[in-house]
Computed example of a mutant assay.
Amino acid sequence: MRKRKSILIWAGVFSLSFLLYFSFLHSKIREHTNTEVPKHADYIIILGARVKGEVPSLALQYRIDAAASYLKKNRESIAIASGGQGPGEDITEAEAIKRGLLAHGISSDRILLEDKSTDTVENIRFSKRLIPQNLKTGLLVTNDFHLYRAKSIAKDLGLNLEGIPAETPTVAIPKSYAREYLAITKYYLVNFF
C-alpha cells in the first residue's frame, strides 16, 4: 500500500513538473510573438519551410504574406529569402519565397537568396553572410510558434533581431507546437548543459 502511494506521489510530481515546464515554454513562445514589430528595419530574413513540389506549404505561405506586408510598408527594407531544397521539393525554399514576394509586387532587386541551408541554425548563419555591411537593423520572419527559438539562435550567432510573427495554420497548431516544445528542449540541452 505504501509503495503504491509513493508511486502515485512521484507520478503526480512528474506530471505537474511536465505541465509546468511546457507551460513555461508556451509562455516564452507567446511572449516573443506579442511584441510590436519595429518599423524601417534595414533587412528581414524570411526563414524557409516546406515546399510541396513548387508550392509553398501553408506555413511558408503565411511567412511570405507577413514578409510582403512588411516590405510594402517599409520600402527601404530588403529581404533575405532563406532555405535550401529538401526531399519532395522541386525548388529551393528560398526560390519559393522569392516567387511569392514577386507575386505580391515586391521588386526582385530587394530580394537576396540564401539557398543552401537545411535547418534554422543554417538559415540564420548563412543569411548573416549575405547581409550588406552597411545594414544594421534586422527582423526575422517565421511562424509565431517558431519565433522564440529562432531569435535565440540568431542571438547566439551575433544577430540581435526582433521578429515578424506569421500566423500558424490552424490545422498545423498541435503538431507544430508539440515539435517546437521538443526543439526548444533540445536547444536548451545543447546550449546550457
Rank of each mutant, 00 (worst) to 15 (best):
K151V: 12
R125N: 06
H40N: 15
V51H: 07
L60C: 06
L182M: 09
I44N: 01
K175L: 03
S117W: 03
Q85P: 02
I106Y: 03
K73I: 01
Y188H: 14
R4Y: 13
Y177R: 09
F193Q: 11
A66Y: 06
N34V: 00
I106P: 07
G105P: 03
P174Q: 12
K72V: 08
G100N: 09
I164V: 05
S17M: 15
Q61F: 13
L157Y: 10
R179F: 01
H26V: 05
G83S: 09
I131P: 02
G86R: 10
Q133D: 14
I173L: 03
T33G: 15
K175V: 10
K186R: 15
L113A: 08
L189G: 03
T33H: 00
L182F: 13
E180N: 08
R75N: 12
P174V: 03
E31M: 13
S15F: 15
L182I: 14
G12C: 08
A183E: 12
I64A: 04
I64R: 09
F14V: 14
I9Y: 11
I124P: 11
S127L: 05
Y188R: 12
K73R: 14
G83V: 13
Q133H: 07
E162K: 14
Y177E: 04
P174W: 02
D65M: 09
T168H: 10
G100Q: 11
D42H: 07
S77Y: 04
S108P: 02
K175W: 10
W10P: 01
G100L: 05
L19Q: 02
Y177T: 04
I91Y: 07
E36W: 00
I7R: 06
I131W: 00
I91M: 14
G83A: 11
K186P: 02
E36H: 12
E95G: 00
I106V: 12
P132W: 03
L25G: 09
S152M: 14
I124R: 05
I80L: 06
L58Y: 03
Y187N: 13
N143W: 06
L102A: 02
N143Q: 06
R2E: 10
Y181F: 15
D156Y: 02
G158V: 11
K5P: 00
T33A: 06
A68L: 08
G138F: 01
S82W: 04
V55H: 08
T185Y: 13
S69G: 09
T118A: 04
A79S: 13
R50L: 10
R125C: 01
K98Y: 00
I164W: 01
Y187W: 15
R110A: 03
D144F: 01
K116M: 05
T35I: 09
R110G: 01
K136L: 03
R129L: 13
Y181R: 04
S82K: 12
L112D: 01
K73N: 15
K72G: 04
T118L: 12
R149K: 10
P56C: 04
G88R: 12
L58V: 03
